[in-house]
């Protein structure tokens, strides 16, 4: 509550200065409803970065809401933002399909909607102005390349068996990353078999349990692809506890824990994706839309490959 209070004070003071200054354009009121802040560091860091970016811009006021992972609450928040007549709404969907009617409602009220981080399903594309976030299909195929290259180095690309721990079912990011990975892998490494995929729900504990089950079921696992590093580290912990060495772990959204495990050589590769870039891109997209600028419908920011070999080029993630 205090942070909000400070934010209001700060923007208040800032806008007062501007007003006294001279030409004072109308401030843009931008509302955001986030998926589930506090469930992991990525979302928390995203929220902070978003607020910081909004504070730094005197033309912007923000209403920051969190759906707590509950679709019903997110729909209610969309209605609240429409009722408060904000100028634009940024939504981080809890479920890519369930929020479409709520997004249409905003569209019908002439409020532009920007989807951030994880896209909504295609049926809803008519009602949004832009999607700002990572290109998750590319992320998945890059992860497949990282894994395949490593297997080729090790000379086991003819017989390796891997398992996949995907993100939360129904969540577009999870679907796209899995699709990108599963499509690309047979192109680069046709003889590597993906024996099983199970969801880890973006949760480290859940992922650890899933991996424990995999280890019970399969005597030979050469690689694990997980939908993000948080889950990847959970899987790594399970493998370490069971004393199974030599498994190649590849993830996405490089978390600090993943980066550290990579330093120790336990974790092989990931995709570098910053929540700060993500948040700033979303806010900028909303501002551009409100300013009437041309914004690409799919507004991706770049997310490069990171592995044990090239990690020195990247600073350690803050989350």
């Amino acid at each position: 509550m205090t942070s909000k209070f400070r934010r209001v004070l700060a923007t208040g003071v800032a806008s007062a200065c501007l007003f006294a200054g001279a030409a004072y354009a109308d401030t843009m009121k931008i509302g955001i409803t986030q998926n589930n802040v506090g469930v992991d560091s990525y979302q928390t860091t995203y929220e902070r970065a978003f607020i910081a970016a909004a504070e730094a811009n005197p033309d912007v006021e923000t209403v920051v809401l969190d759906a707590g992972g509950d679709v019903a609450r997110q729909i209610a928040q969309m209605e609240d933002l429409i009722q408060q007549e904000v100028d634009a709404i940024i939504i981080w969907p809890t479920n890519g399909e369930a929020v479409i009617p709520a997004v249409r409602k905003a569209h019908n009220a002439d409020i532009p909607v920007i989807v951030t981080n994880s896209n909504i399903a295609e049926q809803g594309f008519d009602f949004i102005k832009s999607f700002s976030g990572p290109d998750n299909i590319t992320q998945g195929s890059r992860a497949a390349e990282i894994m395949c290259d490593k297997f080729k180095d090790m000379g086991i690309d003819g017989e390796a068996q891997i398992v996949q721990i995907s993100g939360q079912p129904g969540y577009t990011t999870a679907i796209e990353r899995a699709k990108g990975f599963e499509d690309r892998l047979p192109e680069v490494c046709p003889d590597v078999t993906l024996v099983e995929t199970q969801p880890g729900d973006w949760n480290r504990e859940k992922s650890q349990r899933v991996m424990e089950a995999f280890l019970v079921k399969y005597d030979d696992i050469d690689g694990v692809y997980s939908g993000d590093d948080n889950m990847g580290v959970g899987a790594l912990n399970a493998a370490k506890a069971a004393g199974r060495d030599g498994i190649i772990f590849v993830g996405a959204t490089n978390f600090a824990v993943g980066y550290e495990a990579m330093e120790r050589g336990e974790y092989w590769g990931s995709i570098y994706q910053s929540p700060v870039d993500d948040a700033e891109a979303a806010l900028q997209t909303a501002i551009d839309v409100l300013n009437g600028e041309d914004v690409p419908f799919l507004n991706y920011f770049d997310t490069p490959k990171i592995t044990h070999d090239n990690m020195a080029e990247f600073s350690k993630p803050v989350f």
């Binding site: 802040v37 506090g38 560091s41 979302q43 928390t44 860091t45 948080n230 978390f255 120790r264 989350f319």
Partner: peptide, 15 residues
Amino acid sequence: LTYSGGKNMDIADKE
């Protein structure tokens, strides 16, 4: 959540 600021908590030096 207040205590952690919503962030994951990790030990810096795991080794």
